[in-house]
């Protein structure tokens, strides 16, 4: 029995259907990310879980209890907003204690819990300050503490890192994950940043036009995207249009070079795709003209053109290996385990 059940949710605003038949089961203590571009419906699903939007159809169950008809203040949910949304008139401690206070918890019990929460987020000395006296990252940590203080059944994070600097974003996301695992709280995290989603989730739901395109672990999503949209949205992808020579053995022709995948493929035309780290330089392979080289420290990024496509290839830094120069022709060799075979989107069939 799953802990949080989103049972065939639908939501329309007027004539526009924002969420189509969204169905998902979340286990207790799981960290789930909703990943997708803006307007894909991920925030709407989150707001339905919180109770700010009423589903047009479908049910929401938390721990077996149907909460679809309950108001937000009856659901025992914690939520963190993108713009912090701390109450500016209350101190940090009063913000964190807000949920307990409205629930009628006596002051004597609130104090220790607030202190515990401030310890948890690493701001034990900040209780007496007002929100404007904190940095953005600190405010968002306080918002997290405020959401967690009343011991919610589910934690919802609505793009909590988007308003922050890059550096703080990384450290705060690690801290969020740590706290989440420490408390074992079931969490839904909404983001449009694939790196964020890949790095902290147990499972990711990639959403596109109101539909869950694919649900899976970060590795599944990255290595085995099931739809063209997921393959493109998550990570960088090199795409080669391919002609099928033998469907049974997976023999394809890519840009004048024959490649054998060693597994059956569907009838053509197909797109052969690989992540930047799924390509290696070799003596033979798909010929490519180097257009640029970037040195990114641990990784070297090669930009090239092959089979009429722009290609990005990453390889680890090796102090002794020579870098190809722009203009040089190299050969890209497929690493079998990395290749993905995608159906060619209709628009690309000429």
């Amino acid at each position: 029995m799953s802990f949080l059940t989103l049972d065939h949710l639908q939501k329309s605003f007027g004539d526009t259907k924002v969420v189509h038949d969204f169905d998902m089961r979340v286990e207790k203590g799981e960290f789930i990310s909703f990943l997708g571009p803006s307007g894909c419906g991920k925030t709407t699903v989150l707001r339905m879980v919180a109770g700010f939007e009423t589903p047009s159809a479908g049910r929401i169950l938390i721990d077996g209890q149907d909460v679809t008809g309950l108001r937000p203040n009856q659901r025992q949910i914690g939520m963190v907003f993108q713009a912090y949304a701390l109450f500016p008139n209350l101190t940090v401690a009063d913000n964190v204690g807000f949920g307990l206070k409205v629930a009628g918890v006596p002051r004597a019990e609130r104090g220790p819990r607030v202190a515990e929460m401030l310890d948890l987020i690493g701001l034990p000395q900040m209780g007496g300050r007002y929100p404007w006296q904190l940095s953005g990252g600190q405010q968002q940590r306080v918002a997290l503490a405020r959401a967690l203080a009343p011991r919610p059944r589910v934690l919802l994070l609505d793009e909590p890192l988007s308003a922050l600097d890059a550096k703080i974003r990384v450290s705060l996301r690690n801290q969020i994950r740590e706290i989440q695992q420490q408390l074992g709280i079931t969490t839904i995290f909404v983001t449009h940043d694939q790196e964020e989603a890949l790095s902290i989730s147990d499972r990711i739901v990639v959403m596109h036009r109101g539909v869950a395109d694919q649900t899976g672990t970060p590795r599944e999503i990255y290595n085995h995207p099931t739809t063209d949209f997921v393959a493109n949205f998550v990570g960088t992808l090199n795409r080669f249009p391919a002609e099928v020579l033998d469907a049974a053995t997976g023999r394809l022709r890519v840009g004048g070079t024959e490649i054998e995948l060693g597994r059956p493929v569907g009838p053509g035309p197909l797109v052969l795709a690989a992540r930047p780290e799924g390509l290696v330089l070799a003596e033979t392979g798909i010929p490519a003209e180097v257009t640029g080289v970037e040195f990114l420290g641990s990784v070297q990024r090669l930009r090239a053109r092959a089979a009429g496509q722009s290609i990005v290839m990453d390889r680890f830094n090796a102090p002794t290996a020579a870098l190809p120069a722009p203009g040089e022709t190299v050969h890209l060799c497929p690493l079998r385990s990395h290749w993905m075979v995608l159906a060619q989107p209709e628009a690309e069939i000429v």
Partner: peptide, 10 residues
């Protein structure tokens, strides 16, 4: 602010 208060049970 309103939503945060609401979801905290207010």
């Amino acid at each position: 602010w309103r939503e945060a208060a609401e979801v905290l049970g207010a």
